[in-house]
């Protein structure tokens, strides 16, 4: 049933397109590039997308190609080695923008072709169940008084978790440059260091923390979403609920190589629109606590324009932008 539905969607969308849009479709194997190693959210995104392209018969043949390295930059270099070739698409992540802002990469979203924004992931702030920190307001108050009084566990300096903390404390009027950031190699190590009481607070994607919150080992303080989420997170306030005008989402999207033709972009617009409307995709989103945020290629471009400006502001406040 799902397959029929998906295929029907494509036909419907394709027929709705202007005539030139049908000028291009893949003739060979499509490569879905994952700019990170196996395991982790980016890899999961690429594999979910490739499986759906295949199962919904949106493309004939496709394969996932892991190109890890240099915070995603090597994947983008590989993508651009196939300039103007519509058979190559890559998962895009926040570091595509932030690494360019901090100067650790010379490639950003304007050097590739944005094709879609797929979903948003929100950052949950959690402490151990026995922590003296009462709630989000208490956390902000303690850090405003002494930014060094608590330690945060994160996975990268200038990474999404670090940026969220910077945004929240910055908006609340605290000193973001003196915060204690303890950086671990992986999200798993961050979670276990919080469970073991080695760091005080962890800002991390919902999926990493929720099982431990449900088991009563951790306590949620706040979430970086613009409005309150449902189900398991219904009782968790947003920062705005707590009087701090901060919201942040870490997203994933799809990009193609530089120099794609309008016909190629039209094909991928139709394809990703069909994919994101399928039931199977909605199930993937729910399982991983990803919030649907599909945008087509032109909307994705202006979304990234805005994000670039926002990120630059936050990273400047954190003192991470090379002058």
């Amino acid at each position: 049933m799902k397959r029929i539905f998906g295929a029907g969607m494509v036909v419907g969308l394709l027929t709705a397109m202007p005539a030139w849009a049908q000028d291009w479709k893949p003739e060979r194997n499509v490569e879905v590039i994952v700019p990170s190693g196996p395991g982790g959210g980016t890899d999961k995104t690429g594999r979910a997308v490739q499986a759906l392209l295949q199962n919904l018969k949106l493309v004939d043949k496709s394969v996932v190609v892991n190109k890890p390295g240099a915070g995603g930059r090597l994947g983008m270099i590989y993508l651009n080695q196939h300039a103007a070739d519509g058979h190559f698409v890559s998962v895009s992540t926040v570091p595509l923008l932030t690494n360019h802002i901090t100067g650790s990469s010379n490639l950003t979203y304007t050097d590739v072709t944005p094709l879609a924004q797929l979903f948003s992931e929100y950052i949950l702030f959690a402490v151990r169940a026995d922590s003296p920190i009462k709630d989000g307001r208490d956390l902000v108050a303690r850090l405003k008084q002494d930014p060094q009084s608590l330690s945060f566990g994160v996975t990268a300096i200038g990474g999404t978790s670090h940026m969220v903390v910077g945004q929240v404390i910055g908006k609340a009027g605290g000193d973001t440059k003196r915060l204690k950031m303890v950086v671990f190699k992986s999200g798993g190590e961050v979670t276990s260091s919080l469970l073991g009481g080695h760091v005080d607070v962890v800002p991390a994607p919902v999926a990493n923390l929720l099982p431990h919150i449900k088991a009563g080992k951790l306590r949620a303080l706040a979430i970086s979403a613009p409005r309150r989420l449902g189900e398991d997170l219904a009782s968790v306030p947003t920062w705005r609920d707590l009087g701090v005008d901060a919201s942040f989402d870490t997203w994933r999207g799809m990009v193609g190589p530089k120099g794609m033709t309008p016909a190629q972009m039209a094909f991928w617009d139709a394809t990703f629109a069909a994919m994101t409307q399928s039931d199977a995709w909605k199930q993937d989103l729910a399982k991983n606590f990803w919030g649907d945020n599909y945008l087509n290629s032109s909307k994705a471009k202006s979304y990234l324009d805005r994000e670039y400006k926002d990120f630059k502001g936050i990273l400047t406040d954190l003192g991470l932008v090379k002058q």
């Binding site: 196996p38 395991g39 890899d43 991983n288």
Partner: peptide
């Protein structure tokens, strides 16, 4: 919590099957 690459991929697989490893 995965301790390395292989267990990280297995964790992804668990979640894909709708099984949440943990307490």
């Amino acid at each position: 919590i995965p301790g390395g690459g292989a267990t990280a991929v297995m964790l992804g697989a668990f979640i894909m099957y709708g099984v949440q490893p943990g307490p």
